[in-house]
């Protein structure tokens, strides 16, 4: 059975406020939780594969974007059987409320939420502000691993089409709204990778023709929480000229930062059709004879 939503006033303006919970709400839920109840499961999903082990929200399980959500052979997400195993092992049933949080302003948490959505998991929410906010507020973390009671999660066939774009979809989409959420240097073609990050092997720099540069971080406050709806509308609607009925593709380097923007457009601003191109620049920048644009605008 689903857990009641966080009726925090700060969220009420968003298109889908039920997709966010505050640190205070989560702390209260955990304080009153019934031992063995399966209606709320907290998941930590980080860039750093060891960060969870250094201390996590009590009772939270870990899902690693690479080792748990990606297929280890093909460049693709896990299939329904593996997904059922990953979730079932963590005590998640099909109707469980899942709250995900992570490092880096919830990049990887948003990415995990997006993958959960590929499998149609209905009630999946983000902890606004993520791991950093929880820690900054002095809320408890622990190294104690939660007890695992495996449950049955059904094997669901992944449904990519509504929220995932592939290279051919993007080729056909050129001329329609597209958001490049990488840093300005990556967009212009000056950099082949994120500043301060390892080179991940793109042969060409630049962006997909027609894509607008809206770095993901513009949607986040200093403390990693999401900006207010009016601030977000000022960026995506007024400044970028997007409208919620637009068919939008977002991309970055491997689809993690663009999951953050996908979440903002879909759940906070109520866009109907946003697809994340997870192949992103590590595919496009290596593909033969796809059009590339360079320069800052």
């Amino acid at each position: 059975m689903a857990v009641a939503t966080d009726d925090n006033n700060a969220f009420s303006d968003y298109a889908h406020p039920e997709r966010l919970v505050s640190t205070g709400w989560l702390a209260a839920q955990l304080a009153h939780r019934v031992e063995g109840a399966h209606d709320l499961v907290v998941i930590e999903s980080d860039e750093d594969v060891l960060l969870y082990e250094t201390g996590h929200i009590p009772g939270a399980f870990k899902i690693d974007w690479h080792t748990d959500l990606n297929d280890q052979v093909t460049r693709d997400y896990v299939d329904g059987e593996r997904f059922a195993q990953v979730l079932g092992e963590r005590g998640i049933r099909r109707d469980t409320t899942v709250v995900i949080y992570g490092d880096k302003s919830n990049w990887w948490a948003a990415y995990a939420l997006w993958v959960f959505t590929l499998f149609g998991h209905e009630d999946v929410r983000l902890l606004d502000g993520g791991r950093a906010k929880w820690v900054a507020e002095g809320r408890g973390i622990t190294r104690v691993l939660p007890a695992r009671t495996a449950v049955d999660y059904p094997v669901i066939e992944r449904d990519d089409a509504p929220i995932r774009a592939f290279k051919d979809d993007v080729l056909a989409h050129i001329g329609r709204p597209m958001v490049d959420v990488r840093s300005p240097g990556e967009y212009s073609g000056e950099l082949l990778h994120m500043p301060d990050y390892p080179q991940e092997g793109a042969m060409r720099g630049g962006h997909i023709p027609g894509a607008r540069s809206v770095p993901w971080a513009r949607a986040a406050n200093e403390d990693g929480t999401f900006k207010s709806r009016s601030d977000l509308e000022a960026i995506y609607l007024s400044e970028q000229g997007l409208t919620p009925s637009d068919d939008v593709v977002a991309y970055c380097r491997i689809g993690e930062r663009s999951s953050h923007t996908w979440f903002v457009l879909t759940h906070l601003l109520g866009f109907d059709k946003v697809r994340n191109y997870d192949g992103s620049w590590t595919e496009w920048g290596n593909a033969v004879r796809v059009p590339v644009e360079v320069g800052a605008t």
Binding site: D48, V49, L50, L51, E53, T54, D103
Partner: peptide
């Protein structure tokens, strides 16, 4: 930094 335990490891 402590937020980078893999790198520290």
């Amino acid at each position: 930094p402590p937020e980078a335990p893999t790198t520290r490891g």
